[in-house]
Design a protein around this nucleic acid. Structure first.
Lengths: 103, 103
DNA sequence: TGCTCATATGCACAATTATGCAAATGATTT
DNA sequence: AAATCATTTGCATAATTGTGCATATGAGCA
């Protein structure tokens, strides 16, 4: 579930930037448009988008000559919350209800 | 806030393993003990721990000869939830009060 | 002081990753 | 079909990262 592939998609500054930029847009954007949000070559952006798509962060759809990418927010949010909940359950809330066993 | 450094700490399989292992323990563990949860050399584990500490994931405390590391769950959970909330706010809940559905 | 144990660090090396350019692919238009 | 536009991919290269071994540091103990 918490695969390295998933978090690798988040640990590059350009990818994080793209993710947030796309999320704010909250609509499908084509590669050329997305590439305006960071400084690197468009081909690099294309590769980042592919990688994020492979990690389940994005979905894509071709419309004519262009390919539109969109944030798969549901999936990303779910994984992030799952890890947060796991850590929370282990280390924060569990103790309060009197459980003493942790592994 | 969503620094590459933070997510870099999550994107190595050994570090992710260490994080979950330590969270399940939910107590301070020394390096030697922690190193039993993954296959790599103890010196490598030591480096991973340092890195995770630098990223704010762990706290450490020396007791005699040993150094004990503990998950800083509050911080990690907060960052994960913040990103989840940001994406959620942009792409999931925001539109709903306007009436339209998002998948 | 020396000795031992636990951890950290220097170093070299292998593996991975990010990048830009050039060329290829896919799709529309003329 | 040829031309054009948008995106992807091949390739080379630079940069970063993960790893193990050997050594250093720091702390207690004989």
């Amino acid at each position: 579930m918490f695969t390295p592939q998933f978090f690798k998609a988040l640990c590059d500054p350009n990818r994080m930037n793209i993710l947030q930029w796309l999320a704010k847009k909250n609509k499908s954007c084509c590669v050329g448009e997305i590439s305006t949000c960071c400084q690197v070559d468009l081909s690099v952006v294309s590769r980042h988008l592919s990688q994020m798509k492979a990690a389940g962060f994005l979905t894509s759809e071709r419309r004519g000559k262009e390919v539109f990418y969109h944030v798969n927010a549901k999936t990303v949010v779910h994984v992030l919350r799952s890890l947060a909940d796991f850590l929370d359950g282990c280390c924060l809330t569990k103790k309060l209800k009197g459980g003493e066993k942790n592994d």
